[in-house]
Design a protein around this nucleic acid. Sequence first.
DNA 1: ACCTGAACACCGTTCAAGT
DNA 2: ACCTGAACACCGTTCAAGT
Lengths: 176, 176
Amino acid sequence: MRDGGYHGFSFREVAADVGIKSASVHHHFPAKEDLASAVVDGYTERFIATLGDPADPSQTPRALIDRYVELFRRALIDEQRMCLCGLLGSETRSLPDRVSADTRTFFHRHIEWLSKVFRSDAPHESQTGIEDKAMRLVATLEGALLVAQSLGDADVFERIVGSTMATLELGGSELN
Amino acid sequence: MRDGGYHGFSFREVAADVGIKSASVHHHFPAKEDLASAVVDGYTERFIATLGDPADPSQTPRALIDRYVELFRRALIDEQRMCLCGLLGSETRSLPDRVSADTRTFFHRHIEWLSKVFRSDAPHESQTGIEDKAMRLVATLEGALLVAQSLGDADVFERIVGSTMATLELGGSELN
DNA sequence: ACCTGAACACCGTTCAAGT
DNA sequence: ACCTGAACACCGTTCAAGT
């Protein structure tokens, strides 16, 4: 699913990996939509859990954003894969309702988390401005992953991210 | 293909659209890889042709970039679809060699075109800095398309793009 | 509760047979 | 040169039958 998207994996593959027959997989997940939905939900939960508290007082906003970026970097470098929801998001129009809804939730929660971090970094900025920055960061990271993977060049990711970080005006008032 | 990616369309669908049998499609495109490759090549050529000359003296760099952004906006608003190569790029790892090579070419040519525009806007900037900006713009637009489509909210695209354009420092020396 | 084989209409691909 | 039907191993899904 991380490689070929919703249409790029099969019940028979999953069954073979687990060591049962494909008809048996349907006993746990009646339709492909159910299986995919469970996978996306788990992916989102793990991602958000790894991010931790966006208002963690022991972490500087800059450090939290760096950690956020690091998760995308690891997808590209270590796992050599897209973000699951980046892939599914681009397939939205051909996805079953529940799966596209789960993908939507993924991005909502990311924007929410990032907004909280940016908020603690810039308490007086407008909520719109904060959200704009959050949306721009997720979008740029998904896009950087996508383009770097397409070009088969991890350095492209670093160049895009490096050039972007400079535009976020992070840590202005709380360098320590 | 613009909806479900490489694995999301079939020879039998294409055949039905054209009014022949699926076996007949194989006469024109022996394998799915050949069909997809032809589609991607045509898409790339049309896209680049629409962009026009990146050094067009009758156009300000800012206007050229605006036109570039406008093509992505139209994909989202008018066609309600992803960029074909954005979708395929996210599937890179499960694509036949020739199709992923074609997708790579798409992004190379976009970065090349954008670099020329940025170059004419900033003749003294380093080539690395120019390319970084070009890569960042394609990546951000692909990501903005992806996130806006995932959230089912075209306004998300506008907010990301608006917030990004301000960081490109365009038209500094040639306002007219 | 969990698994299975067999069936269904689908998929890419091949090929011998038609015009 | 272009099309076709039939076949192959694949796909999601269903279901009656097993433990």
